[in-house]
């Protein structure tokens, strides 16, 4: 096959895979071979807005990501950064969920390629999927406490029988010590942090005397506002468990007034 024939065949194949179809006045659907992991192709519309033309995904890309991820996850941390970087790198604008790129000087092709690159980059955030299998964090903390604190000093899922007979405000672990009880919460996510915060505030309201410890599976994954509020009501925080085992045990023993085993 000659170079010319290869070139022609190449162009023909590539061109055939990008096509547009009219969807009413000043509006066309753009079909491309680019797709998400599930085989759904990118949604792209070419439409006139004011005096100019633009390409839009009409909000499909971010909505598609929410089939797997929480929308909130797209606004925080690494995923938010990937999305904002992709938007700025390819001069794509977000308008309340709709991604658009303007077409300058009739350069439709350039705009389309930039738009596709941005959408593909954004769709990559699904690879940063949340940890799928439940962790053994809580069980690990429980085992650690049981191995290092005398069994008769530990209460698991304790609630105050006087103020809370229905057990609405439980504590993950209570260590009974000579200096008073130590309340320990093992937290994997924002919901658990909020729950622990409410419980601690309720204990304060009831006038309970206690020390409190919060252990995070991964503090970096906790919303900053939630973390700030929680730190106001909890005495001591440990940002993670595995690397703080010794410090955690030392702190529990000191706070509870226990001698080392």
């Amino acid at each position: 096959m000659s170079v010319e024939a290869i070139t022609k065949a190449f162009r023909q194949t590539v061109c055939e895979q990008v096509r547009i179809e009219s969807e009413g006045a000043n509006r066309f659907r753009v079909f491309t071979p680019f797709m998400f992991n599930d085989g759904d192709h990118l949604a792209i519309v070419l439409k006139k807005e004011g005096k100019g033309w633009l390409l839009s995904d009409e909000g499909h890309t971010l909505m598609h990501l929410t089939y797997e991820l929480d929308e909130r996850d797209l606004r925080e941390g690494g995923r938010q950064k990937i999305i904002s970087n992709a938007l700025s790198a390819f001069t794509v604008e977000e308008r309340d969920g709709e991604l658009v790129i303007g077409i300058e000087d009739s350069r439709y092709g350039d705009a389309l390629y930039s738009f596709i690159q941005a959408l593909m980059k954004i769709s990559d955030v699904s690879y940063l999927s949340r940890e799928r299998v439940r962790t053994t964090f809580f069980e690990d903390v429980k085992t650690f406490i049981e191995e290092n604190i005398p069994g008769d000093k530990i209460r698991t899922s304790w609630s105050d029988p006087e103020h809370d007979p229905d057990g609405k405000y439980p504590v993950d672990f209570v260590i009974e010590g000579t200096k008073g009880p130590v309340f320990i919460y093992a937290m994997t996510n924002d919901d658990r942090v909020k729950e622990a915060m409410i419980n601690l505030l309720m204990f304060e309201k009831w006038g309970l005397k206690f020390h409190s410890i919060g252990i995070f599976e991964n503090q970096e994954e906790i919303n900053r506002k939630n973390l700030a509020r929680f730190s106001d009501v909890c005495e001591k925080l440990f940002s993670s468990f595995p690397s703080n085992r010794d410090r955690l045990l030392k702190y529990i023993r000191e706070t509870a007034g226990m001698a080392a085993a």
Binding site: G39, H60, E68, R132, V133
Partner: peptide, 21 residues
């Protein structure tokens, strides 16, 4: 015992092409 969500069925609209890979 898992926080994984496994998609069994999904009824999609008409806004994009689909390819069965």
């Amino acid at each position: 015992g898992s926080n994984q969500h496994f998609r069994l069925r999904r009824y999609n609209g008409k806004s994009h092409e689909h390819t069965n890979k």
